[in-house]
């Protein structure tokens, strides 16, 4: 683990040095600010970045929670009442043909200039991946487990919640990890389309004023938030599934 972290830091450092060299070669600051300049801006404008960052973070987290809950609920309902599959599932698939970006202006119109429309956007963007991975997981339960539960007199609801849902957790976990990286996209797009606060708003403003260093600083904050969210979700999933062996760590890339 520490070795992997060390390698990651080394790779990042090499990239930073390359970046610095490129800017030293004479690329103007408004095109590509040097990493040192971005770092300076990060420190100098920390207050502004934190203020807008917290707004975006709130939107991302709210969207992540809403989208995940809605996705899991949809998967459970579809598994429990099979007749819904024929009607709801095609509708869901068709809805995925609509790019969320295309309806972003509409969402701003409906849910306002504030965080509401951004939360809805993030929710929409992660809803389907979560619903479909969870639903697939629910359907792929070992049939023998369901037989056993039946002979024990388990009701269909109990079979769903006590057998199928835990069995679907690994599949759901990969959906949630995917959602953790997609939720920020929804929030940022929402802020671009219409808002008066948030990192997306800040980036758009900075871009218009040629404050490219501020834009990079905002981007850096966003990256840190997304990566933290991803690893937080990953850790949470592992904690919820203590029985699940960590195959990557056990059998994966052996250290040379």
């Amino acid at each position: 683990m520490t070795r992997a972290l060390g390698r990651l830091l080394l790779a990042t450092a090499v990239l930073m040095v390359l970046w610095q060299l490129v800017t030293l070669a004479g690329v103007p600051r408004y095109m590509l600010p040097s990493p040192v300049a971005v770092l300076e801006t990060l420190i100098a404008r920390a207050e502004l970045l934190v203020e807008h960052g917290l707004i975006t973070l709130g939107e991302i987290l709210a969207g992540f929670v809403c989208g995940s809950l809605l996705g899991v609920a949809t998967a459970l309902v579809l598994s429990r009442w099979q007749f819904l599959r024929a009607t709801v599932l095609p509708l869901l698939l068709i809805s995925q043909a609509i790019p969320v970006f295309a309806i972003a202006p509409l969402l701003v119109l409906w849910f306002g200039y504030g965080p509401g429309s951004k939360v809805v956007m993030a929710t929409l963007i992660i809803y389907f991946p979560v619903a479909s991975t969870c639903y697939d997981g629910l359907r792929q339960t070992e049939p023998g487990w369901l037989d056993l539960a039946r002979t024990m007199g388990a009701s269909p609801a109990r079979r769903l919640l006590r057998v199928q849902l835990p069995a679907a957790l690994p599949a759901l976990a990969s959906g949630l990890r995917m959602a953790a990286t997609a939720a920020p996209i929804g929030a940022i797009i929402g802020e671009w389309v219409g808002s008066s606060a948030g990192l997306g708003y800040l980036m758009l403003q900075a871009n218009g004023r040629m404050q490219t260093d501020l834009m990079f600083a905002a981007l850096a904050v966003l990256v840190v938030m997304t990566v933290t969210l991803y690893f937080g979700v990953d850790r949470l999933c592992r904690t919820l599934m203590p029985w699940q062996p960590d195959r990557l760590r056990e059998g994966g890339a052996a250290p040379p």
Partner: peptide, 26 residues
Amino acid sequence: WMAQQDLLLPWRRVIDNVSLGAAMRG
């Protein structure tokens, strides 16, 4: 019911697998 596979639920500890029937009946 006892099938060819042991059908132990991986997310339940051994003791909770033994008393699975109670959980299944609530």
